[in-house]
Nucleic acid binder design. Structure first.
Length: 195
DNA sequence: AGGAAGATCTACT
DNA sequence: GTAGATCTTCCTA
């Protein structure tokens, strides 16, 4: 299998909108019991700081949200309706914002992901934020993991060079969204959570 | 103690 | 495709 190389911290040290867009096509890798589980990121959403009514950083720092203010490239895992959602912290340390990984296209370890999720359909395996964390066996224990480190159990690596169109829409599921659309996905991907 | 939360599943049309 | 039930965790009172 080919070698995956992580993206540097600088990549995350930028506006969440830019990072969300540029994470499309990169590879999410999970080292799990001596196996490599991996998938191409096909859908993301940006969450901003204090002025974003949908962001957990809209209020001041509380224990469950404090990782939003951590170093860029930190995994921030959040529970919603009994699902774990994987975010990556963006912007320089102390500026709360993050990118939610909403969907991936399975590449490696598909058999194991199917077992974790108890489904047999690849299209339905990782096409949602709570689905992909379950397929990759990601939960709160991994809060704070540095995804820029080659030896991390969860990391994000450079994808293959390919051309695709990016679609920009409003975020999904939030009760109060901003006027600005902050959801990005790869056009025509069969693995996005929703068109 | 009560309820909201960035979701998912199932069962319909 | 859409509606409603149910999901689990952690905040707020």
């Amino acid at each position: 299998m080919e070698q995956y190389n992580t993206l540097p911290r600088k990549f995350y040290e930028r506006d969440a909108r830019i990072v969300a867009k540029e994470l499309l096509g990169q590879i999410l890798v999970r080292v799990y019991k001596n196996n490599i589980l991996a998938g191409k990121i096909v859908e993301t959403e940006a969450y901003l700081g204090r002025d974003d009514p949908a962001s957990v950083a809209r209020r001041s720092k509380v224990p469950y949200s404090e990782l939003m203010w951590e170093d860029p490239g930190t995994a921030f895992i959040y529970a919603v309706h009994g699902n774990w959602l994987l975010n990556i912290v963006t912007m320089p340390r102390g500026k709360a914002s993050a990118v939610l990984i909403r969907a991936i296209e399975p590449i490696n370890g598909i058999e194991i992901m199917m077992k974790n999720r108890e489904v047999a359909d690849t299209k339905n395996l990782t096409n949602g934020p709570g689905k992909l964390t379950k397929a990759l066996a990601i939960d709160k224990r991994f809060n704070g993991v540095d995804v820029t480190k080659q030896r991390s159990p969860i990391k994000i690596c450079r994808g293959f060079d390919e051309n695709f169109e990016i679609v920009r829409r409003h975020r999904i599921g939030v009760s109060k969204d901003l006027e600005e659309p902050l959801r990005f996905y790869i056009k025509d991907s069969k693995f996005v959570s929703k068109k």
